[in-house]
Nucleic acid binder design. Structure first.
Lengths: 221, 221
DNA sequence: ACCTGAACACCGTTCAAGT
DNA sequence: ACCTGAACACCGTTCAAGT
């Protein structure tokens, strides 16, 4: 488990190339084309550089992707320490969510990679500070942060389909058209089920339930 | 949003090929090699068949993967309707979790695909039935199921590293070695934080908090 | 030293041909 | 009709060569 995705080598570029510029261009390509459309060859084209030049800055494609994940984690704005612990957790979690929703492919990448990069650790530290300050034990704070973290990334990953209203209407119709004998509970609540699959507010609904549960556990300590 | 990943075409095989046999072989290959190691060419080799033969059964690789996702969702054992709604939800969610933990690559695939396959709908129906029976409104039941579903898949996806004890010990050491000035809360709880990243019980901790929160909401209705 | 084209071992899928 | 090899347009990465 490498603690840092830090660049192994920093050439003195003759082409004005830097890790930063490569990462920015790579992120834009990833946002535009998705994971499937992203390739070292296309990235090199976008940078106006030979394919193999990138390998002087990142040893492999995987290393570059690791750095990209950390790059985005580092882009989550720091949160202020004001308000109740619930408010602070909400702000932190929503900041993580907002930043990562801008880069869906990054969420996908996180699945396969370790989380111990500097960007991720800063977020963990922020979360642990809030929860410990609220009075959670070391163990419960660690578990609570992990739960909140996975909930947030789970929603960013599996959450609302980015499709528009048309797709939601289609989903409602599809669910309503299911055979009622086999799916009684589902067809009875077709509109609500489709809405829950597409609606942004479901994230906050679940988050509030989770925070309620954590508060109950805290009161019992 | 296609409601069913059903095969578009079923040839009368001269080689004893069926969709079922292709899917079983594909799942074994996927489990063994991961998403990166999975290819149509390798699958065809495993089946002792020309690569292009598979295209007579599944129109593209993506269609085959869709069918595979549904195949696994359909393999979740049906749950009995006994006990409190909390117990029933726990049993359902743990069944989904257990089945999908056997096939990590399937969880990864779910990220990119719609969820409206027959296998997934059966699980939604089971969940909705339990929650509606407990007394949740149509809307809250739909939201609660979606939250539980995403929590479960989020944990299956981002959850415990499959690494063994060695990796966990390494994580503890890595976290403990962080600079305490920058990561005071994290280094103070290094062992607990590492444990939360590797420990199986964190899933149930968070699930219980979520169920507590849902119960509170139910009581207020 | 920084940079790169050619080459290697792979992909998914089209298409025409084989039975 | 079912099945398939060759071919096309791609990959990531090694390696030797260019400056």
């Amino acid at each position: 488990v490498p603690l840092d995705a830090a660049p192994p080598h920093t050439p003195d570029s003759r082409l004005g190339l830097t890790h930063e510029r490569i990462l920015d261009t790579a992120l834009a390509l990833l946002d535009r084309e998705g994971l499937d459309g992203f390739s070292m060859r296309r990235l090199a084209d976008g940078l106006g550089v030979g394919t193999m030049t990138i390998y002087g800055y990142f040893r492999t494609k995987d290393r570059l992707l690791d750095a990209l994940v950390d790059h985005v984690a580092g882009a989550v704005p720091p949160v202020s320490g004001e308000g109740s612990w619930r408010d602070q957790v909400r702000v932190l979690v929503l900041a993580i969510r907002r930043t990562h929703l801008l880069h869906p492919a990054i969420v996908e990448l996180r699945l396969r990679r370790p989380l111990l990069s500097t960007g991720a650790l800063d977020l963990t530290e922020a979360g642990m500070r809030i929860l410990r300050g609220a009075g959670f034990s070391r163990r419960d704070a660690a578990r609570a942060y992990r739960t909140l973290f996975i909930y947030t990334f789970g929603f960013a990953a599996f959450g609302p389909w980015n499709g528009g209203e048309a797709e939601r209407d289609q989903t409602i119709r599809a669910v309503a058209a299911l055979p009622a004998e086999r799916y009684p509970a589902l067809t009875d609540a077709a509109a609500e089920a489709a809405e829950a699959m597409a609606d942004e507010r479901v994230f906050e609904f679940g988050l509030d339930r989770l925070l309620d549960g954590l508060e109950t556990a805290l009161d019992k300590m």
